[in-house]
């Protein structure tokens, strides 16, 4: 397993190089001059545009630009954005908020998703099962921005149960609704996956053995059945941590949260690529690392998996 982990870590290097190069190249190729519109109603003077171009190295060949990016990233120097504010300052304040939001979302997915899935799987065709099936179908067919704006309008604007937007410090209680919105799709999918897995394993021979051993129903379900049924579910939850972070772009945008997603959202609309590039690169890294962790976790969850 150690050798496998090292090999997988080494594989990350070419993947990271490839993706970050594409991000760098494509972002600066987007139409529109990021500096042209920064001077209010008047066009920017050539002197300003040229100064900015040379500051951010845009007058140099693509490969040189990429080399600068790599050396800067490896030395931990994220540079400054177009307003001359250090990018590391902006991101340093934002990461904790996004991580808090993502962890809350994962918790919702796991607790509500798995709970609903188990209940509906155990009593297939029952009342709970129907409720879960219908509500997950609704959640699955709604895009995140619809769920987000809907809940914001309903709970925040109409009913005044929560604040429509989150304050800059983003305390946990204000993040509950955004986290639910962020989790909604995966939560529904988790519930369905758990249900299928439970139904499938319920008739397995080892469950029958557990009953024949004279174990209580609670132990048969809670230990023997659940331990096997959760293998695919936990794998799914793990791989989705990465997409949760990028999904946070929409959610944080809607609820005006100053997390990574919110910053990325504003940077994209404001064409500030000095922020877009490092943030998307970091998201790629998060995605890759969480996938690696899931692959390693999989071997712990299912002893039949062997790493050659």
């Amino acid at each position: 397993m150690g050798r496998y982990a090292i090999r997988r870590l080494l594989q990350l290097i070419p993947v990271l190089l490839g993706t970050t190069f594409l991000i760098n190249y494509m972002v600066w190729q987007l139409p529109g001059d990021p500096f042209a519109g920064r001077c209010g109603q008047r066009p920017c003077p050539d002197a300003y545009v040229n100064a900015m171009r040379s500051q951010f190295g845009l007058d140099q060949p693509v490969l040189i630009q990429y080399w600068h990016f790599l050396t800067n990233m490896l030395t931990g120097n994220l540079g400054v954005d177009f307003n001359q504010v250090p990018v590391s300052t902006t991101l340093g304040a934002a990461w904790p908020i996004t991580i808090r939001l993502a962890l809350m979302a994962v918790a919702f997915e796991a607790v509500i998703g798995i709970g609903a899935g188990v209940l509906s799987g155990l009593k297939r065709g029952g009342f709970t099962d129907n409720i879960v099936t219908i509500s997950t179908l609704i959640l699955l067919s709604l895009p995140v921005f619809v769920t987000g704006y809907l809940l914001q309008w309903m709970l925040g604007v109409q009913l005044h149960v929560v604040e429509p937007t989150v304050s800059p410090e983003a305390p946990i209680d204000e993040l509950i609704v955004p986290a639910l919105v962020l989790a909604s799709l995966n939560m529904a999918f988790t519930a369905r996956l758990t249900r299928t897995s439970i139904v499938e394993n319920l008739r397995a021979d080892y469950v029958r053995t557990a009953v024949a051993k004279g174990l209580t129903n609670r132990r048969v379900v809670g230990i023997h059945l659940l331990r096997n049924s959760l293998i695919p579910v936990l794998t799914f939850l793990g791989t989705e941590v990465g997409s949760l972070m990028s999904g946070a772009i929409i959610t944080e945008g809607i609820f005006n949260i100053n997390g990574i997603g919110g910053i990325l959202w504003r940077a994209i609309t404001g064409q500030d690529y000095t922020i877009v590039v490092p943030v998307t690169s970091l998201l790629v890294l998060v995605y890759l690392v969480s996938n690696l962790l899931v692959d390693l976790l999989y071997g712990v969850l299912d002893p039949r998996i062997r790493y050659e």
Partner: peptide, 24 residues
Amino acid sequence: RRKIRGEGISMVFQDALSALNPVF
């Protein structure tokens, strides 16, 4: 009934690979 299973009457199944729990 449950207490009799295993204590009083117990059973060996045909296919031990699927009858044993794979993850324990």
